[in-house]
Amino acid sequence: MVVAKKYVIQKHRSGLLQPEDVKIVEEELPELKEGEFLAQAHFISIDPYIQYLIHDEEKHPVGSTIPGTQIALIYDSKNPKFPIGKYIYGNFGMRTYTIGPLKDDDPYGMPPQYILPDFNSYPYSYGLGILGMPGITANKGFLGLCKPQPGETVVVTTAAGAVGSVVGQIAKIKGCRVVGIAGSDEKGKWLVDVLGFDKFINYKRPDFAKKLKDAAPDGIDCYFDNVGGEISSIILSQMNKFGRISVSGSISAHNVESGEEPKASIVQRHLVLRQLKMEGFMVTRWRDEWFEIINQNLQWLREGKLKYKEHIVCGFDNFPKAVVDLMTGANTGKVILNVMG
């Protein structure tokens, strides 16, 4: 009998996740039936949406397993499509063992599971980052919506994160000038010196609007928005005519107390006067192209055109710490929970 550990919601709150908001419970799993497999979690993805979902009392009541994706090893199997020893991506949640296959009924359209393609020498954990959902988000969310042209200026917020760092590098591949925005000078040094960004702005320092003007004196053509709030309003105010904005997230609102959501200057005037195109998206829009996009990012990795960094938190017990690291900006690159570490 296999005993799985899983994180369940113990308390809903506004603001940053606290350790007492979640707890680990154990669950005895039944013997496998024909057509099933048993997956053992090795790496779990820590993403901003987790914080948001934990606060959603209607869809995720107290006692429900915390959603999430993972890379797992097929530990046992009675399904020839999922043989023992293969590594698998799975939308299994925050748990150590899972019986699959899951039904294809995720409300957000995420694929339930798939065998990882051949990554060659790259770690399996990349399947949760640059060779998985965040990498697809960066690739298609930027190229598909912003449609950058050589010589254009691109601004990326949360530029040192799993998505933003890839967006900026893809913009450089496409011949653009890139300004990255993040919350520490150390991150900025990595963006410029290692990833090849042209400029960096620390949004925590004063005079953000002036620094943005200095970094992009000819205006902004494309903006990849991960944060929302006043920073995004300032960026839109400095965009060129017919600029394009791809909206991936609103991290600025994830940690606040209920009723204290950040206020931002109105943006409609900029949209109208500059004739901007602003579009939000969910990555599952491109689910039919999933592996094609992974292979494109893999090719750029092999060619040295993309660099990638992971922020590893070891131990299943440290899930709350991993979430806090992400939401407070302690990470550089993709946050991964190493279950086996």
Rank of each mutant, 00 (worst) to 15 (best):
G229F: 02
D221E: 12
F197C: 08
M278R: 07
P206Q: 13
V194C: 14
L273N: 14
Y203M: 05
C222W: 02
V283K: 00
F224C: 09
S250K: 05
P262R: 09
K213Y: 02
L212P: 07
V267Q: 15
S233Y: 07
D218C: 09
N255D: 14
M282K: 03
P262H: 03
K213N: 14
M282G: 11
P217T: 03
G188N: 05
K210M: 11
I245K: 10
G196E: 00
G183M: 00
G196M: 01
G196L: 01
Y203P: 02
R269D: 15
L273V: 14
S184G: 07
R274D: 15
S184V: 03
V194A: 15
G183A: 05
S252Y: 13
D221S: 07
A215V: 00
V192C: 12
L271I: 07
I245E: 13
I251S: 07
P206V: 13
S248H: 02
L236Y: 04
D185V: 08
D198C: 00
D225T: 10
V267N: 08
V179L: 05
S233R: 08
K199S: 11
D185H: 05
P262K: 06
G196T: 00
E260F: 05
M278S: 11
G259V: 01
D193T: 00
R274F: 14
G188E: 05
I234G: 06
V283Q: 05
F200S: 06
S252A: 13
K277G: 07
G243R: 12
I231Y: 08
S232D: 12
K210S: 10
E257F: 10
V272L: 15
G280P: 03
K277Q: 10
H254M: 10
M282Y: 04
V247P: 02
S248C: 14
G259R: 10
D207Q: 11
I251Q: 07
Y203L: 01
Q268P: 03
G228M: 11
G219I: 04
D193W: 09
S258V: 13
G228S: 11
L236M: 10
S248I: 08
